[in-house]
Design a binder for these strands. Sequence first.
DNA 1: CGTAGTCTTGAACCGCGTCAAGCTTGGTGG
DNA 2: CCACCAAGCTTGACGCGGTTCAAGACTACG
Lengths: 259, 259
Amino acid sequence: MRTPALTQIKPARMGDAAHEDMRCTDCPIRYRAVCAHCEGDELTQLEQIKFYRSFEPGQPIVWEGDRMDFVASVVTGVATLTQTLEDGRTQMVGLLLPSDFLGRPGREHVAYNATAATKVVLCCFRRKPFDDMIRGTPHLAHRLLEMTLDELDAAREWMLLLGRKTAREKIASFIAIIARREAALHKRRPGGRMELELPLTREAMADYLGLTIETVSRQVGALKRDGVIELSGKRGVILPDFARLVEESGDDSDGGWLA
Amino acid sequence: MRTPALTQIKPARMGDAAHEDMRCTDCPIRYRAVCAHCEGDELTQLEQIKFYRSFEPGQPIVWEGDRMDFVASVVTGVATLTQTLEDGRTQMVGLLLPSDFLGRPGREHVAYNATAATKVVLCCFRRKPFDDMIRGTPHLAHRLLEMTLDELDAAREWMLLLGRKTAREKIASFIAIIARREAALHKRRPGGRMELELPLTREAMADYLGLTIETVSRQVGALKRDGVIELSGKRGVILPDFARLVEESGDDSDGGWLA
DNA sequence: CGTAGTCTTGAACCGCGTCAAGCTTGGTGG
DNA sequence: CCACCAAGCTTGACGCGGTTCAAGACTACG
């Protein structure tokens, strides 16, 4: 198992200070991240233990077994969590989009490999003071509970995909998930014609879906041939009809996607 | 496997009052369930909104879409959470053992089918007052957060199994999981020779593992032929050597099971 | 141009699903 | 006490979906 070539990555350094001056009140994820319910004093406290870090695509963020000295919110970009078996088989177990939370409070060591899929900016909190705040700040703890419950729901949806869907359904489901999140980001409902950019390479998609990259490639091709999707470049996808895609995903005709 | 706690339970119906008199201080899951950190006044409050319900093997507990009027802790027995696709394909997404929590605070409707796999006794809390307590009782909220994070970790391990393990590894992993939990229940470390009772039918195992019952049956047979396990009856399993089973599961040689 | 990284395509293989019997066990009633 | 039956489990034959292995094509960047 070889580690991805890190050599070409330019020195985006830890503790990068490009954003140190950003105020929480201007933050693009202010009302969706773990800090969403915090105001006034609580927010000030958070602001005092926070710092920003950026990562280039492909760059590891933290590695399984590392000492965990911070937790973080994704401000912009997409990060992935992966697990591996000793022989190198890998499965993605988390896909972190803006406002998602990285790390487990109270845990000393990292449990999963976290990698930047695109350029990523994290809002990091020093772990010790953050842990203390969890205990003393109900708004923070409550928001984290909400977010963790949402993650758990997403993980369970994902388990259904991994255990019971066909390759074609998996691909359709993945594109639909990205489309929904894209729509949510612009505060619109998914539907009709949509255009979007896949935030993952074929390999990362394969790790997400429990497939090989060859199968991903073939099924993407099949969906294109069947007119369910159109491609523009390697990452760009156009959906002539979102509902058609959902049909292909094997999910309930429509229900359950209102929350 | 003996389960002393179950013997005293009367043939029960829903809303059964056989346990209404049980005090929290005598509860077998007192320090592991959601109530673990609660003392004194908090415990009294919980005690006022709780009631017991029992279920027979195979009996549905709640159904997807139902109105959720309670949340609950599993006191004894094993329950499952499952999701289904419209064409009937089923995937288990949760396996609830004693002290595990059922239901999502703040949610109006049930998201998954919950079914009793064995005889089950639940300690139920009326949802509205419980939701209020979550906001006003840090100990309760904090424990629930801990438990939810543990569930999320388990779900991610499960995703690795579903996405990347072979049928044989899945079966070995499942038996190892049951063996570990069994050991934990008796406060021992898993290892050496062990005996245990599978709490699921072949069909439920298939739903857990993303397989068909035929494949489950074949791979159980194969592990038996290869001397990894011995069978006693349909549900009974004897492990001559726990470490050998773990090797077959595809997981790391040993690491990661200390938490 | 040439090279590296990423993606696509093709052909052969095989693990697991599908379909169809048969077996084991426990319960029920004659 | 045994005939019968249903539920759960096992076993076998066969075929398909997805992996594996091996080229080839496209793009970005020297």
